[in-house]
Write a protein that binds this DNA or RNA. Sequence first.
DNA 1: AGACAAACCTGTCTGC
DNA 2: TGCAGACAGGTTTGTC
Length: 279
Amino acid sequence: MPELPEVETVRLTLAPAVGSRVTAIWTSGLPLRLNRPIDIPALTRASRGHTLEGIRRLGKYLLLDFDGRARGTVLVHLGMSGRLRLGPRAAPRADHTHVIWRMGDRELRFSDPRRFGLVSTLERGREREHPSLAKMGPDPLVDTVDGACLHAAARRSRRTLKALLLDQHVIAGIGNIYASEALWQAGIRPLLRAHRLSRPRADRLAQAVREVLDRALGHGGTSLRDFVDADGNAGEHAHYLWVYGRDGEPCPRRGCNGRISRVVHDGRATFFCPRCQHP
DNA sequence: AGACAAACCTGTCTGC
DNA sequence: TGCAGACAGGTTTGTC
């Protein structure tokens, strides 16, 4: 489900929880990503009895920073179907709820039907020692992801550009939807070999990545099915997608009379216009 | 190195 | 109406 704009939308809508103290924790006991159980003692140490001081995002990961001697951070990844919701304690519990942080008369709840998500803990200042974050690349909304940086990564890779964009070690936060969208905006074929990307086209692609993510964030993210923000609202960006999920439809680029194609690459649906996206 | 498939799991949609 | 199969925003692991 969630790529960078969706995760950032969750982060922004979770802001009202900042300043709240966790009074109790509940977990389902079911394992999440990789069949790994949640480390309940570590989660308790990091958050119970502590006040949520702030929420950060690194790529598709959220980091919930708590105060107290432990200065613990709870790491959350939403996987494909994960949700973080903030609501009244009395609200009915959604199916597949796995973690609840009680905060006075409100609760922060993590639910995830497919259980591809992650809830873990780490020590503040040691983010980069966590295996999930250790090799994470720059984040386009926070760090500089420009043509120079993209070109440098591309020139030493013989993979396709789509695969490069999806590699979180290269750029953090792009997923399957926005990889196709950014390549369409830049007018570049997804299956072009990365090392053949010229510097001017790298500039265009870097610009496209930023614009695509910004635009989606402005719409509160893309809800194809599952995604909702912390208040339970769906994002609007699905109405504005140019190519993702639109195979057979006319290319939306002005003056282009092509039709959107769908191919499967690396086992994932990839959408592009064969007419205006050049190899 | 990188392509590919399978694995993790549930829900939804399609076609018969 | 039921059932089988395909497919889904992600990441990890293993094989070739």
